[in-house]
Design a protein around this nucleic acid. Structure first.
Lengths: 199, 199
DNA sequence: GCTGTTACATTGCATCTGCATTGGAAAGAC
DNA sequence: GTCTTTCCAATGCAGATGCAATGTAACAGC
């Protein structure tokens, strides 16, 4: 066998090039030639590592969910080590928001995919599952916190979990249009968490 | 002069055809030929009423904001007649959500435009202004309500206005992916309003 | 060294896209 | 009635796009 290449790593590199194009010029500008040029390779390599354009887009989406889960997971794991439910929820919310250039890029691309899925009626299963997943995560944490007497009285935790998860999505788009920066977003989230937690 | 045609009405019709395509097959599928076929006219008519494709897309966006403002405005005006600030805020929030097939279609198209703008960095001014505008509307209503002693004590109304407006954006996307229906969305909004208003 | 597999470049092609042009039909003004 | 203005159909064109076909260099195993 000749020059061995790590196909998965190569695909990740090509996906990065795709992200750069999609986040700066839109998903419409993602063509085989554009990705090839951005990655600094010949157009053939794109075809070589992705049978078809749709495969390339699919792989890039899978990669972006990986990166997102990785990023959020790091923050959540760190917060979970403290055993503080409030910190975990905070990490869940802030962990998916565009707080720096890199995450902003990925969030922009994510929105682009989201729009395509919505406008086609055929939404990827994981696309649909993301919000309920976040709701469940938050609801679990709220449940634990209540058992430990850390939750203010008179709250409907299911509705609170929904509201928090929904606010996360809203914050994401609000930050992408520049209406809120990371600092203000954190303030709003903390303000809401203050209403839920005692102490 | 010959057969007089209402150009604006014609453009509105063509915009509707564009909406149908964009909401069902994505903005990428919006081509001059596709819009012509969907509207049941020749491709030339598209060119005749829109100098260029970008003009067509721009006009459609302008039209969709008109329709949105109209719809929300109706609900808000009705609520405003009661003089109930809570009802006004409720109308502001629910008035922009996809509660039926028509509004769902328009919201989907709106998201598509939003994604294009975000991924190009060059966001239309009104796109950026929408969220702050909603915040101001809600904040004003909350201010009035507080003066009338209808607001629960210990709240930061600016943060509450931000949180409500942000939740609106989140609900919109949540509903588009099918995570929430109109009923559940109203429940969540009412739950939050219950926390803000007394009585 | 020979061979075969892997990785890659180049080229070509059918299709689609936005846009322009040319020619003509229809409806009112005079 | 004819004529001018408005509206519209058909066709053409240059560029871009996804994809396929062909040719070639590098390296492992015998």
């Amino acid at each position: 066998m000749p020059k061995r290449v790590d196909h998965e790593e190569k695909r990740r590199d090509l996906a990065e090039a795709l992200f750069r194009i999609a986040s700066m010029r839109g998903l419409q500008a993602v063509t085989l030639r554009a990705v090839a040029a951005e990655a600094g390779v010949s157009m053939f390599q794109i075809q070589y590592y992705f049978p078809t354009k749709e495969d390339m887009l699919r792989h890039a989406w899978q990669r972006i969910t990986e990166l997102g889960a990785e990023r959020a997971g790091r923050g959540i794991a760190e917060a979970a080590r403290t055993g503080d439910e409030r910190a975990v929820i905070r990490a869940c919310v802030l962990g998916v928001l565009p707080t720096d250039e890199r995450s902003r890029m990925l969030c922009a691309v994510q929105i682009a995919y989201f729009a395509v899925d919505v406008t086609r009626g055929s939404q990827a299963p994981d696309q649909q599952a993301m919000l309920p997943h976040l709701v469940r995560l938050i609801a679990d944490q709220l449940g634990h916190a209540r058992q430990r007497g850390r939750i203010a009285p008179g709250l409907d935790l299911q509705l609170e979990a929904d509201a928090l998860a929904i606010m996360t999505g809203g914050l994401l788009s609000g930050m992408l249009v520049g209406a809120y920066d990371a600092t203000r977003a954190a303030e709003i989230v903390d303000y809401r968490l203050d209403q839920l937690f005692t102490g």
